[in-house]
Measured scan of single mutants.
Amino acid sequence: MSIQHFRVALIPFFAAFCLPVFAHPETLVKVKDAEDQLGARVGYIELDLNSGKILESFRPEERFPMMSTFKVLLCGAVLSRVDAGQEQLGRRIHYSQNDLVKYSPVTEKHLTDGMTVRELCSAAITMSDNTAANLLLTTIGGPKELTAFLHNMGDHVTRLDRWEPELNEAIPNDERDTTMPAAMATTLRKLLTGELLTLASRQQLIDWMEADKVAGPLLRSALPAGWFIADKSGASERGSRGIIAALGPDGKPSRIVVIYTTGSQATMDERNRQIAEIGASLIKHW
């Protein structure tokens, strides 16, 4: 058993032996400061991975655009179909130039040979490839079927209504393609630790998130040596930015963190910096 498999397999085991986890309101002070700095709403939640207890939250039940963070949920739905014998990670999917949409750094290189379902999930999560996400959405029946999958998990909040890139429109008060921090954190925890997916599929999902290559300026920039993080970021119109993550010290995840912001006029660099500073406060007061 690899170190990674050891880590995921023991998450339920550690729940019975973990020390009490204490919240630190200092992080919420930073979240509120980020709102002031960005001139935008910020949603935040910090969840204990083992118990599911909410440690801190700010606007946990307000809607925010999901942006590309939905791609983790999408690959969770794909893995659920794999577990049920309805899909194979090794199945190759062929597509054409007409299928390519904006920001497809991986799929645009494989027009001649296509990509496997496994490769598409990797591209969608680690590189946020939009065509990969659309191709995967097609395999499960489209955005409405992803919403149905989430409903069956008990998440009646999170919804996907459109495809890439239209889902990134982020119109104020538009509930399409949105979630709430509390709903996203709970759903992510179920995917990573619950019985919905097999152990192998849970491991695969967290491996893809751990290999994320496009979230460096966010929480990863504040991470001390030896800490673990598996994450997925997102960005969209109207100053929207977000990240969902499982992270913790000693090389294993122990908390879920979800951060969303929307409605800012700030630059992408400034949005990144504010999220990184929230992460730094979280780690300092861990």
Rank of each mutant, 00 (worst) to 15 (best):
F6D: 08
E175P: 14
D250T: 08
K53H: 12
N173C: 12
I259R: 00
E164P: 03
L196E: 09
L188P: 00
P253D: 04
M127T: 10
V42L: 09
S57R: 09
E210S: 10
R81N: 08
N152K: 14
T187S: 12
S68H: 00
S281N: 09
P20Q: 13
R41H: 15
F13V: 11
I93L: 14
T147A: 04
P181T: 02
P165T: 07
L137H: 00
K144L: 10
V82S: 07
T186A: 15
N168S: 04
P143K: 00
L137D: 05
R238F: 12
N50Y: 14
A84D: 12
S254H: 09
T186Y: 14
K284T: 11
E166I: 07
M184V: 06
S221Q: 11
T27M: 05
T126A: 10
E108G: 12
P12S: 15
K190T: 13
S80T: 12
G52L: 03
R162G: 03
D231V: 04
T126D: 10
L199V: 13
S281E: 13
I125Y: 00
N134D: 03
R189V: 07
E62G: 04
Q86A: 10
Q265D: 13
D207G: 14
A222L: 06
A215G: 10
S236D: 07
R81T: 05
L247S: 02
G90L: 11
F22N: 13
F70Y: 06
R81L: 08
Q204R: 10
D113P: 07
F6R: 10
H24S: 12
G226K: 08
R59H: 09
L247V: 10
A235C: 04
K144F: 08
R162C: 04
A183S: 10
S201Y: 05
S254E: 15
S236I: 03
L47T: 07
P224Q: 04
T126Y: 03
L282G: 02
M268W: 08
T262A: 12
M268I: 12
P224V: 02
S233G: 07
L111A: 11
P224C: 02
G52S: 05
V257A: 04
F70V: 09
A246V: 14
S201I: 09
K232I: 00
M115G: 00
K144G: 13
R241V: 00
D113H: 15
A9S: 15
P12G: 15
L160I: 10
L74E: 00
R162T: 04
L218S: 02
L196Q: 13
Q88Y: 15
D207Y: 12
T187G: 04
A124I: 00
P249A: 06
K213G: 09
G85V: 05
F228V: 05
H24R: 08
G226C: 05
T179Q: 00
R81G: 05
